[in-house]
């Protein structure tokens, strides 16, 4: 086993283990902090896949932004709400969980099906791009590529997303401002 493979399995194990903890624990604040570990392990997996820009973006946006926001929401809400969640009866099999279990089982079957049927060693499109030298080397710098593509090929979706974010910002500002007396 090479070092890269060892690292992959380590990261994958950490990501899955912490994700299971996040989903199963009743202490919500701890589960948020555990989610941080899941995100870091995911960033590590991205680095192993040579997507370093995506890995760092993941940390900037999820850890620096979304996790902090979730924590804020927590700390601004009272302790009673948190206690309510940990007081819920939790049996592993109950009728309320049936839809979720069914969905999860179907998804698992689908995934296993894909893994078994797909011959990952010799995929057609991978071979073609290897022949055409259309693959990413570890030494290559991808940031410029991402920037150029965003501003040429994907300009329309990029602008559409920015308008969407703008609308959300204006909406948030409107909702949070003081009511003017008529």
């Amino acid at each position: 086993m090479t070092l890269v493979q060892a690292l992959f399995y380590l990261m994958a194990f950490v990501a899955l283990g912490s994700a299971v903890f996040v989903a199963s624990t009743k202490n919500l604040v701890r589960s948020i902090f555990m989610f941080f570990i899941t995100l870091m392990a995911l960033a590590g997996l991205y680095v192993l896949a040579l997507a370093d820009f995506v890995a760092i973006t993941q940390i900037v946006i999820y850890v620096g932004g979304i996790l902090v926001l979730i924590l804020f929401a927590f700390m601004l809400s009272g302790r009673e709400n948190l206690n309510y969640i940990s007081a819920i009866q939790n049996k592993f099999i109950s009728i309320r969980k049936l839809p979720a279990l069914l969905l999860a089982a179907l998804f698992l079957i689908g995934l296993i099906n894909v893994v078994v049927k797909m011959d990952t060693g010799n995929l057609e499109w991978v071979k073609i791009s290897m022949e055409q030298k259309n693959d990413i080397q570890p030494t290559i710098e991808m940031t410029g590529n991402i920037g150029v593509n965003l501003m040429t090929h994907y300009l329309l979706p990029f602008e559409a997303v920015s308008i969407l974010l703008m609308i959300a910002l204006i909406g948030a500002a409107h909702l949070s401002r003081k009511e003017v007396a008529v």
Partner: peptide, 24 residues
Amino acid sequence: LNLGLYYLFAVLSIETLGILMAGW
């Protein structure tokens, strides 16, 4: 690192999480 500056920016944002952890 060819993304050194961006990496720094990302790493600095982790500190916030540590502070919130200490506070809570």
